[in-house]
């Protein structure tokens, strides 16, 4: 058992290092050019956002429509810090601080509102994100109001993106594979039963919310320090919807589903970049069609794993035998 586990661990490690190395190589020989790098960045940021919202909505069952609000806190915090001190340590400090601030707001908002259920919570979180956006618009002397901040120094490169993305996904995955994570999942399944089985549901709901907000803060910081420019409207209702769509499209309660959907949506939106209205119309239609015909999303609550492929192989082998 022990040996098998570590073999699995090594396989994973190899896969992760390989992914990093190959992409880094492609970047250095400029096969992944600036244009593709922007897509790559969007993908990584989307993955962090989708996986962290999945923790809140897909695994803990708390319906949030305000994830972009947390993202904006991370983005503004980091941007303001590195605009003043454009160094890598300050970028890291800004990211950490942005994430912590987002988590703090998540805590303050979550504590009272997480008593609400379903649609009500969705609307409350939507309202919260709108309030944050309006505050950023109005704190003119700090945030430059609706015009936003520009000329933010770029520190984000593939290495940082990779570290933050893989780190976030692994930490959340580990958490979900622990007793604490299972407590969250139990809340989604049946809150009253979970509470009666000794799970402090309020604490775990707030915890999921805070972890999710923290990660969204990281995503925001990465966004600010890659794309040079942020303004409050980037983090509006539509952005929150975008993130939720990734979670639902990939499958609520499936981390690999979220990753898949994050990649898919970033690619689609890059391909359709020059047709902005048609892109939105298509996006809307795809959304409606998927919800009607495959409401559980691409993967449902399942995960893609290496063993899945070997099982698939066995399945086909069995088919042959049967013939």
């Amino acid at each position: 058992m022990k040996g098998k586990l570590s073999a699995q661990f090594i396989r994973r490690l190899v896969l992760i290092v390989l992914t990093y190395g190959v992409v880094q190589l492609l970047i250095s020989v400029n096969i992944i050019n600036d244009y593709l790098q922007a897509t790559l960045t969007t993908i990584c940021i989307n993955i962090i956002l989708a996986v962290s919202l999945n923790l809140i909505t897909g695994f803990t069952g708390q319906f949030s429509l305000g994830h972009a609000g947390f993202m904006s806190i991370g983005a503004y915090t980091c941007a303001l810090i590195i605009l003043k001190n454009p160094t890598i340590p300050h970028f890291l400090l800004g990211t950490l601080l942005g994430a912590l601030l987002a988590a703090l707001v998540g805590f303050l908002v979550g504590l009272p509102t997480l008593r609400l259920r379903g649609d009500y919570l969705a609307i409350a979180t939507l309202g919260m994100a709108e309030i944050i956006r309006i505050l950023f618009i109005n704190m003119d002397n700090i945030t430059n109001g609706p015009r936003g901040l520009s000329g933010i120094p770029r520190f984000v490169n593939w290495t940082w993106l990779f570290i933050f993305t893989v780190g976030t996904v692994l930490l959340i995955r580990n958490f979900l594979n622990s007793s604490h994570g299972r407590a969250c999942i139990a809340i989604r399944e049946d809150e009253i039963a979970a509470e009666t089985m000794g799970i402090n549901t309020t604490w775990y709901k707030v915890l999921a919310f805070v972890i999710g907000a923290f990660c969204a803060g990281i995503a925001g910081a990465l966004y600010a320090s890659y794309f040079y420019f942020i303004k409050p409207d980037i983090f509006g209702f539509l952005k929150s919807v975008d993130i939720l769509v990734m979670v639902v499209l990939g499958g609520m309660g499936s981390i690999s589903g979220s990753i898949l959907a994050a990649i898919l949506l970033a690619v689609i939106s890059t391909l359709l970049q020059s047709f902005s209205e048609i892109r939105m119309i298509l996006y809307a239609l795809i959304l409606i069609v998927i919800m009607i015909f495959r409401p559980q999303g691409l993967l449902g609550s399942k995960e893609i794993s290496l063993s899945m492929f070997s099982r698939l192989g066995k399945f086909f082998a069995f088919e042959k035998e049967a013939k």
């Binding site: 379903g118 969705a122 919807v241 996006y283 809307a284 409401p295």
Partner: peptide, 15 residues
């Protein structure tokens, strides 16, 4: 589920 219906509604809205 409620979330499915809600996302559909958002889809119709964007459309």
């Amino acid at each position: 589920t409620r979330i499915t219906a809600l996302i559909t509604a958002i889809g119709v809205s964007l459309f």
